[in-house]
Amino acid sequence: MAVTATTQGNSITIQVSGRFDFSSHQEFRQIYENVTEEVNQYTVDMKDATYLDSSALGMLLLMRDYAGGDSAKIEIINCNDDVKKILTISNFGQLFDIR
């Protein structure tokens, strides 16, 4: 499990690889809590994420809160079928832009 981030202007892309679970809590939090002020567009790239559990869903909610709650602009992209299924069951499509 690894989390990396690239910032470009007002948008940040966070790449998650491997299992996205509680073990990446610290790493993930540090990234979104340390974004520069102009960042208002978040993308979580799940291209290399193999799995995601309910604590990862919790982390996404924490990030959403941090990024402004209902006004947060967060998209989750490149989900594999397993990841997409978990996001769908939880109906996270109501809170995030899932592609």
């Binding site: 909610l61 769908t88 069951i89 939880s90 109906n91 996270f92 109501q94 809170l95």
Partner: peptide
């Protein structure tokens, strides 16, 4: 019947 709602507490 698939899940159509967000979990409770969110």
């Amino acid at each position: 019947l698939p899940s159509e709602n967000l979990p409770l507490g969110i």
